[in-house]
């Protein structure tokens, strides 16, 4: 019974990779290699302690997301109680594995065991059926649905970044502060990765050009409204470094714009491997951003012409 469930879950993941245009034989090993190199890169740039905060938060977020109420209720309804909890625990441990293996590789048993316990305990808890009717306030314009949804689903990440920023100020580490700034922009860009249903674009009484400008303007204002606090604090604490902080903002806004335009360049389809690769390139080679902005803009206009 449990085995069949995991077989289905595995098939779903494989289908998602295939839908994203990722060849399985290359894609799955590539994900592990990417995880290793990104971890090493972060390890180089951040102190291990700070990296633990970051990875811990990411893993905890994944475990909590996995405890989604609808999914939990479905499983609880269809599986006997003992099997239901076993499922949860096994799934959480699978989510924990990359992190656990990495901590083990770095010889940090305390973190490895702590997070293993956390995943185990979360798996044992049945999330109560609470209907959260109170809305989480956001700093965004009321009509910008993608940003509002993104913020409400991930607001803990922003609090974590503000906490890390505070740490960076305490230890006078500008790099860590800049990391927070860039991480917030990159996270904001995730709000625009998923294509919204056609109806939400069709409704606009705008031509493709005006539509894209409206979207870019809103995305820019919203991203600045969450990164603004970090920028101000960095300016106040490191006034001499104003150029690098301003550049960080420019880079962040450009990344948000690239992701947004790339989404509409293939709309209403989802982003495929080619676009994701180009986005990844712009993260590491900022000089190609203007080229990508132009390319995605032209493609987006052509895609949207049929809808708008």
């Amino acid at each position: 019974m449990i085995l069949y469930y995991f077989k289905i879950r595995g098939q779903l993941i494989l289908r998602k990779l295939q839908d994203a245009g990722i060849p399985l034989l290359i894609g799955i090993p590539a994900l592990f290699v990417l995880f290793y190199f990104v971890s090493e890169e972060i390890y180089e740039r951040l102190e291990f302690q700070n990296m633990c905060y970051l990875y811990g938060a990411l893993m905890f977020g994944a475990v909590i997301a996995n405890a989604d109420k609808g999914r939990q209720r479905f499983l609880f309804q269809h599986y006997p109680e003992n099997k239901y909890f076993s499922l949860n625990i096994i799934e959480n441990i699978v989510l924990y594995l990359p992190l656990g293996v990495y901590y083990w590789y770095k010889d940090d048993w305390v973190y490895a065991l702590t997070w293993l316990c956390v995943t185990f305990v979360v798996g044992m808890i049945q999330i109560p059926n609470v209907n959260f009717k109170k809305r989480i306030p956001t700093p965004f314009l009321k009509h910008s649905l993608e940003s509002i949804v993104g913020f409400r689903k991930n607001y803990l990440f922003f609090f974590l970044m503000y906490f890390v920023l505070w740490q960076s100020v305490k230890v006078q580490n500008l790099n860590l502060g800049l990391f927070c700034l860039l991480a917030v922009f990159v996270y904001c860009s995730f709000f625009f990765v998923k294509s919204e249903p056609l109806y939400y674009v069709w409704n606009y009484r705008l031509n493709p050009n005006d539509f894209l400008i409206e979207k870019l303007k809103t995305a820019g204002i919203n991203s600045l409204s969450v990164s603004g606090l970090i920028t101000i604090i960095l300016f106040l604490v490191y006034p001499a470094e104003y150029e690098i902080i301003a550049l960080g903002n420019l880079w962040g806004l450009s990344v948000v714009s690239v992701v947004l335009l790339s989404k509409y360049s293939v709309y209403p389809s989802e982003l495929n491997l080619q676009q994701l690769f180009m986005i990844a390139l712009c993260l590491f080679f900022p000089l190609i951003i203007p080229v990508l902005l132009f390319y995605f803009y032209v493609q987006a206009c052509s895609q949207l012409k049929e809808i708008l």
Partner: peptide
């Protein structure tokens, strides 16, 4: 969208 209020 999930987590959108009627007003929004």
């Amino acid at each position: 969208f999930d987590k959108i209020t009627g007003e929004e």
